[in-house]
Simulated scan of single mutants.
Amino acid sequence: MSTEASPLMIDQNAELADWCKQWLQLPYVAVDTEFVRTETYFPIPGLIQIGDGERAFMIDPLAITDWSPLVELLESPSVVKVLHACSEDLEVFQHLCGALPAPLFDTQLAAAFLGMDFSMGYSRLVSDLLGIELAKEETRSDWLQRPLSARQLQYAADDTIHLAAIYRILAPRIEAAGLTDWLLEDTAEMVANARTLVEPAQAYRRIKQAWRLKPAELAVLQVLCEWRERQARQRDQARNRLLRESTLCPLVQRQPDSLQQLARFEDMHPRTVRQDGQTIIELIQQARAIPPAQWPEPVPEPLPADANRLLKTLRKVGQRHAERLGMASEIVLRKKVLEALVRTGYPCGPYSLPAELTGWRRELMGEELLALANQFSSRGQPA
């Protein structure tokens, strides 16, 4: 690993095209992004970093206008793209150039596959594998300022240099453990999910307390959430800047019919009342008129405490496989998959495998989980 060469700033289309041609010849590139997302719906990219294993390159998204060479690199099947905990990076690329990195090697996921830890932070991974303590002062920098400071550039460059070094350590370990296909299957699923924006009509299902609402109130929530989602995208404003989530459930329960009533809600920003208050009141009135046959699907309640015995029994299956494979148990059998399985038949069964249990996990332990769940329900106790 060499960090002697200073990072190269790329701010010309032709220059980016030339470098992308060279990167297309490599087996892998390390990729990172710096972005700002305080009041916008979409992340605003401030810097794209590429590391070739020896040197770091800084691509200036405020100057580049032709992203087609980078799209070719991101989508090239012969070049592995190495990122860490990359869900937000994927959003950056999707919005910036409509392309996503594939094949993708996520070093956080790889660490979990190797049993190092689940959801391991980048700084700790660098410390554990490379013995380097990272400075933290630039993590909340203004990446849209120009010129970027020398410290910012060095911080961004170090990220991709270290990321490449981590990949050279983790990739052979993953291969030796026979886990490469499983890891790439998981990251391909991450990429597929990143392509899909939430359907505005289904946005109400993401509201944490929605399950507490009555069916008629849920109809109002659906209308407000659909409007909020569409407007957030159209205006490129954060959802909570338009209408805070904490006010949504109280709003649909009390259903104000004047701006004065709306303004009295706790957490209701005066800006929301001023800019969109009348619209919100009209939307509530429209939603009240929706006939019961058109009310949305209810949001499932949290599983009752009684389900914990079954969840615990099923969780042991994942733990057993994780121990045998040397993987983090949380990655082998995810909580949301467990809960989805229990929901298919709780409390008395019969159970079925949920759509959330896919790929290698379904093949590895699907039948075992299903048999155990059905045995549990028939006996009322662990098998």
Score class of each variant (00 low, 15 high):
residue 3 T to W: 04
residue 4 E to K: 10
residue 11 D to W: 04
residue 12 Q to T: 07
residue 14 A to Y: 06
residue 15 E to R: 11
residue 17 A to T: 07
residue 19 W to S: 11
residue 21 K to W: 12
residue 22 Q to M: 10
residue 25 Q to E: 15
residue 28 Y to N: 00
residue 29 V to G: 01
residue 32 D to V: 04
residue 32 D to S: 05
residue 41 Y to F: 13
residue 44 I to A: 13
residue 44 I to T: 10
residue 44 I to C: 07
residue 44 I to H: 09
residue 44 I to V: 13
residue 47 L to N: 00
residue 48 I to C: 06
residue 53 G to T: 14
residue 58 M to W: 06
residue 60 D to P: 05
residue 60 D to N: 13
residue 68 S to N: 13
residue 72 E to V: 08
residue 80 V to Q: 00
residue 82 V to E: 00
residue 84 H to S: 08
residue 86 C to N: 02
residue 88 E to W: 05
residue 91 E to T: 02
residue 93 F to S: 00
residue 94 Q to C: 11
residue 95 H to P: 03
residue 97 C to N: 06
residue 100 L to Q: 01
residue 103 P to R: 05
residue 105 F to L: 07
residue 113 F to V: 09
residue 113 F to Q: 04
residue 121 G to M: 06
residue 124 R to L: 10
residue 130 L to A: 06
residue 133 E to G: 10
residue 137 E to W: 04
residue 141 S to E: 04
residue 141 S to T: 07
residue 148 L to P: 01
residue 149 S to T: 15
residue 153 L to A: 11
residue 156 A to F: 00
residue 162 H to F: 06
residue 165 A to V: 03
residue 166 I to C: 02
residue 168 R to M: 07
residue 173 R to E: 11
residue 173 R to K: 11
residue 176 A to N: 14
residue 178 G to P: 04
residue 191 V to K: 07
residue 195 R to F: 06
residue 202 Q to Y: 08
residue 203 A to N: 04
residue 209 Q to W: 05
residue 210 A to N: 08
residue 210 A to S: 15
residue 222 Q to D: 07
residue 225 C to M: 09
residue 228 R to Y: 07
residue 228 R to F: 06
residue 231 Q to I: 06
residue 232 A to Y: 03
residue 236 D to L: 08
residue 250 P to S: 09
residue 251 L to S: 08
residue 256 P to K: 11
residue 267 D to I: 03
residue 281 I to M: 08
residue 285 Q to R: 12
residue 294 Q to P: 03
residue 295 W to T: 08
residue 304 P to S: 10
residue 324 R to G: 11
residue 332 V to R: 01
residue 338 L to H: 03
residue 343 R to Y: 04
residue 343 R to G: 08
residue 349 G to R: 03
residue 355 A to L: 12
residue 362 R to T: 04
residue 363 E to V: 14
residue 365 M to N: 05
residue 368 E to L: 12
residue 377 S to A: 15
